[in-house]
Amino acid sequence: MSESASSIRYINRPHPVTGVTNAKLGIWCFLASEVMLFGALFSTYLLLRTGSASWPHGPATLNVPLATLNTLVLIFSSVTMVMSWASLATGNFRKYRLYLGLTALMGCVFLVVKGFEYGHKFEHHHFPAASTFYAIYFTLTGLHGLHVIGGIAVNLYFLFRGRVLWQRDPERLTNRIECAGLYWHFVDLVWIFLFPILYLL
């Protein structure tokens, strides 16, 4: 990409002073706003729990083993995500597709397990309206689930459309996968806090 006057700089090359590319700074800003989004929901959880006379004990009401499995699934998908970036960084496009596919697959497994969990709740008529516990449980895990779906969609896009960009500008694809990875790790990070707070306390 020529560096003429009218093309945007620091897409691939990090800015000399800030040391980051545009996309990386952008994704970190976006993740900062996501911290505030989930922050508001955790603040709601804290208020509802401290404000209520009785609050159900996590392990007694929610399926901890299933959620533990889900946590491991999400952690594993974080690893495959970063491995897919590392493979790209060393130019191994085949391994990158393998790991990225695995990441998307793990994401789907997470959602399927979540589906079972929700299904089980609905069968026993534990709907969000049942109590403020179930309300914040469904809202928190539901919004997190939407973020997982978003992440899977992005990963699938790169899985199928990655080759085109790989031929044209490998460094740009590597940067984009790194940003997609940052988002995915953030989604895993949110679950790492969600899991103990909802399921174990």
Binding site: M36, S43, T44, L46, M81, G181, D188
Partner: peptide
């Protein structure tokens, strides 16, 4: 995984500022 260990100052700056406001948001209500 997010390479924060080797990340530049500007990213840390944004995250630190966000965390400061996060604490207010979390505890005030």
């Amino acid at each position: 995984f997010m390479h924060l260990k080797t990340e530049r100052k500007i990213v840390w700056g944004i995250l630190a500022m966000t965390f400061f406001f996060f604490v207010f948001l979390l505890t005030a209500p």
